[in-house]
């Protein structure tokens, strides 16, 4: 059986990059969906549900991250994650 697959490429626009709270929010979102989601930065891969793996990517402002999902809600989970990336993961000002 072939599960639906989806892929998106995003560029990190926020100055903080893929910081800890961003990683946490991504993991929380990914856990709410059935699809299996991974983040890629170059040859590095992280499971989207694992905060430590996402943080290990060390993705900084301006860098590209490829999101891959596989499952019946693959498009939906990536739509949500891409919105988070474009929104800079919210609350940037609060962390200063």
């Amino acid at each position: 059986m072939n599960l639906p697959k989806a892929t998106r490429t995003v560029r990190l626009s926020n100055p903080e990059g893929l910081h800890l709270r961003a990683a946490t929010v991504i993991a929380e979102v990914a856990r709410r969906y059935r699809s299996k989601v991974a983040l890629h930065k170059g040859s590095q891969r992280a499971e989207a549900t694992e905060v430590l793996q996402i943080a290990t990517l060390g993705a900084a402002q301006g860098e590209e991250v490829v999101l891959e999902a596989s499952g019946d809600d693959a498009e939906a989970v990536l739509d949500t994650l891409v919105d988070l990336f474009h929104g800079g993961f919210g609350h940037e000002e609060d962390e200063k």
């Binding site: 903080e16 905060v51 430590l52 993705a59």
Partner: peptide, 20 residues
Amino acid sequence: PPDRPGDHLRALENISRQLR
């Protein structure tokens, strides 16, 4: 320091990698 987000990110990257 507020103007050095890259350093924070690289420290976090190292900590995360080791803690895995």
